[in-house]
Amino acid sequence: MSQSFKNAPQNAITDSQIARVIPCRELSMSDPINWLKLGVQDAMRAPILTLFFGIVFAAIPWLITYLVKLTGWHLVIMPAIVCFMLIGPFLAAGLYDISWELEKGHKPSLWHSIKAVKRNAVNEWGLGILLMVLMIFWLRVASLIHALYPPYLDENYQNLLPFLALGGVIGAGFTLLVFFLSAFTQPILMERKVDLATAVLTSMNTVWSNKLPMLFWASIILIAVLIGFATQFLGFILLMPIIGYATWHGYIDSIEVKRKRLYA
């Protein structure tokens, strides 16, 4: 796999002087497929851990849906889905650790993966807080949309459709924003002793400099999420770990490193 990197192109991100922006490689449209292949290899090499994290990822939306049914507030389904996508990158830290351990020739363990978030704890928790703020902001917007729903209308599909459509469009915007901010932020913070601003701006620069390949990668993630929900969350058991592993390989393939990296 080619590891030819370029200096970060001049744009509003690299010229901001807010923090150091680590140079990125110019990606091709085939690169996300290669990341998926490497993710599948990692899943096959660590099947027990893959199953564990997959069950966790499947349990979260199941619990959200159960609470929705319990409360009867059907309009919370869309914001709950987006919330799941907002916190997904933060929860994937354990999966990134597994791929990193496999790359180094080590045997990954659950405890080692759980401790992954502590390597750059202040900045990684800062990322978690950033995602949480975005999640809370989205929930407030969703509450406003819900407040627009006339109380005299029956909660059937025809009446709910305009509000679900509005929530879907706004939710898609929030999701793209989160992807722009955090596509590779978590892996950067895990591997490098850098501040949160450097990690976020580096991730943003990578996405901005490779709009089409990264949009393709975002669409792959979206399809995986849709398949997960279409299969009553069972698809998450396999798909979410593969996406997590693939994201780690995408980070290594996209952003300049100090030494040559090995691939499984």
Results as ranks from 00 to 15, higher is better:
Phe5Glu: 01
Ala12Lys: 09
Ile13Glu: 01
Thr14Met: 12
Asp15Phe: 06
Gln17His: 15
Val21Gln: 01
Ile22Asp: 08
Pro23Arg: 02
Cys24Ile: 00
Cys24Phe: 04
Leu27Pro: 07
Ser28Arg: 14
Trp35Thr: 03
Trp35Asp: 03
Leu38His: 11
Gly39Val: 12
Val40Phe: 13
Val56Glu: 07
Ala58Arg: 02
Thr65Leu: 07
Lys69Trp: 07
Leu75Gly: 04
Val76Met: 10
Val82Asp: 03
Val82Tyr: 13
Ile87Lys: 02
Pro89Thr: 07
Leu91Lys: 01
Leu95Val: 07
Asp97Val: 00
Gly105Met: 04
Ser109His: 07
Ser113Gly: 09
Asn120Arg: 01
Ala121Val: 00
Met132Thr: 10
Ile145Asn: 15
His146Arg: 13
Ala147Phe: 14
Tyr149Glu: 11
Pro150Ile: 09
Asp154Ala: 13
Tyr157Cys: 02
Leu160Trp: 03
Phe163Thr: 04
Phe163Lys: 01
Gly168Arg: 06
Val169Phe: 13
Gly171Ser: 14
Leu176Glu: 00
Leu177Phe: 12
Val178Asp: 00
Val178Thr: 09
Phe180Ser: 02
Ala183Met: 07
Thr185Ile: 08
Pro187Tyr: 03
Leu189Tyr: 05
Leu189Phe: 06
Asp195Tyr: 05
Ala197Trp: 02
Leu201His: 11
Val207Leu: 11
Asn210Asp: 06
Leu215Lys: 01
Leu215Tyr: 02
Trp217Gln: 02
Ser219Met: 15
Ser219Ile: 12
Ile221Tyr: 00
Leu222Tyr: 08
Ile223Thr: 15
Ile223Met: 11
Ala224Met: 07
Gly228Asn: 11
Gly228Asp: 08
Thr231Tyr: 05
Leu234Tyr: 12
Phe236Glu: 03
Met240Ser: 01
Met240His: 05
Ala246Gln: 08
Asp253Gln: 13
Lys260Ser: 10
Lys260Arg: 10
Lys260Gln: 12
Arg261Val: 09
Arg261Tyr: 03
Arg261Asn: 12
Leu262Cys: 03
